[in-house]
Nucleic acid binder design. Structure first.
Lengths: 99, 99
DNA sequence: CCGGTCCAATACCAATTAAGTATGGCGCTT
DNA sequence: AAGCGCCATACTTAATTGGTATTGGACCGG
């Protein structure tokens, strides 16, 4: 399991369509198909029903969706904390300061 | 950022030593060194102070540690939910049942 | 002051993984 | 029945990743 797979999963659940999800994720359709399939394989569960209309999330997908979203949110939090730490802790003046 | 990097980060924080952390993670030392460095590069922050004794977590590392741990916990939760779904939803009998 | 030791960092190579392009198969729509 | 839209697959190529071997630097003992 990878963060990329989880992000792909959440996007496909929201779009219910691999093509649109691929667009949002700035990738082409085949890689996204493979990501979802790899996730299903690893978890040993079918997450979507493939219909002529698109991807229909199965109950298991709905079950793990909240956890998946929270993971992505925490990842964003980590990035934010790191970003904040840059301004918070100036160990040594790298260059002349303005004041 | 990847789950492998986050797991490596948490382990190094706990062990304060790349060699021991590498052992726990079943990899050799160089890949682990690179994982930590890649994480630092991506976040744009130093997470550890390299000392002759090992790796000393900096304040930023302590700040993001809880979020990192929670991410790993949620990943485990996703695995557990998927595992549970197998027994919960038998769409078709794959094999003869015991009873 | 010098050699040994323990630590993380780097160079290099091999193996695995992942993306893109092109194409196929299936069901619905007209 | 023909066309269209969807996901799945085959194939090639580029990018990541891991392991082995080695280096450089700081501490410790003699």
């Amino acid at each position: 399991m990878s963060l990329v797979q989880l992000e792909s999963f959440v996007t496909v659940v929201e779009e219910r369509h691999i093509g649109r999800a691929a667009n949002r994720l700035h990738v082409t359709q085949p890689p996204l198909t493979r990501r979802i399939r790899a996730l299903e394989d690893e978890l040993g569960v079918e997450l979507f029903r493939r219909t002529p209309r698109g991807m229909e999330p199965l109950p298991t997908a709905e079950a793990i969706l909240p956890a998946a979203k929270q993971i992505l949110a925490r990842v964003a939090e980590v990035r934010g904390l790191a970003l904040g730490a840059i301004h918070a802790e100036p160990p040594e003046p790298t260059c002349v300061a303005s004041d």
